[in-house]
């Protein structure tokens, strides 16, 4: 970086481009708003300190996710958060949805939280972060074939939950 203002500008671009998705991802993996914000703060703090090492701007998203996952493993893996904010999240646009549609979304959110990490994490990488199967494979260090199986099973489990919990009106065609 040529000077501090260029460095700050590059950092701001990372914040603008990836901050929201990283926060959502953090919320899903730690289930708690305060902890998710802490995780994001630590991730970007480490990114700021190591910004000069980021040579390929196209790899920025993957770089940030790797930092975030390491930070999560380092700080949170030994504990289970005592409460979850995902259950109580209020999405303003959803107030206009039909009750059945809201139930579907709530059930899906519950389902995602109860997925085993080996299914939940690749699914979130794909749906929240827009990762391809190859990118997930690289990030998680498992084969593409294994990733595809995990993604398939994750979706199957979520569909089963919707079916089992009685939401059939709008999603009968899914099964």
């Amino acid at each position: 970086m040529s000077n501090e203002s260029d460095r700050q500008e590059s950092f701001n671009e990372l914040a603008n481009a990836y901050g929201a998705d990283l926060y959502r991802y953090a919320m899903w993996i730690c289930g708690n708003d305060a902890l998710a914000k802490d995780l994001i703060q630590e991730t970007y703090l480490r990114a700021w300190k190591a910004l000069d090492k980021l040579q390929d701007r196209g790899a920025a998203k993957s770089w940030l996710i790797t930092i975030l996952r390491r930070e999560y493993a380092r700080t949170f893996e030994r504990k289970v958060p005592k409460f979850t904010d995902v259950d109580s999240v209020v999405v303003p646009e959803e107030s206009e949805l039909e009750p059945d549609d809201r139930v579907e979304l709530d059930l899906l959110r519950q389902g995602i939280q109860t997925l085993a990490p080996k299914y939940r994490e690749p699914l979130l990488m794909q749906v929240v972060l827009g990762y391809s199967c190859e990118e997930i494979s690289r990030e998680l260090g498992v084969s593409k074939s294994a990733v595809m199986t995990q993604l398939f099973r994750a979706r199957e489990q979520l569909k089963e939950k919707l079916q089992k919990d009685g939401v059939t009106g709008n999603v009968h065609g899914l099964f």
């Binding site: 926060y23 959502r24 919320m27 899903w28 995902v86 999240v89 209020v90 999405v91 303003p92 579907e104 979304l105 899906l108 959110r109 995602i112 979130l124 749906v127 929240v128 979706r155 979520l158 999603v171």
Partner: peptide, 9 residues
Amino acid sequence: LLARAVKLP
């Protein structure tokens, strides 16, 4: 549906 469910505010 899934995309909508994960899009937390």
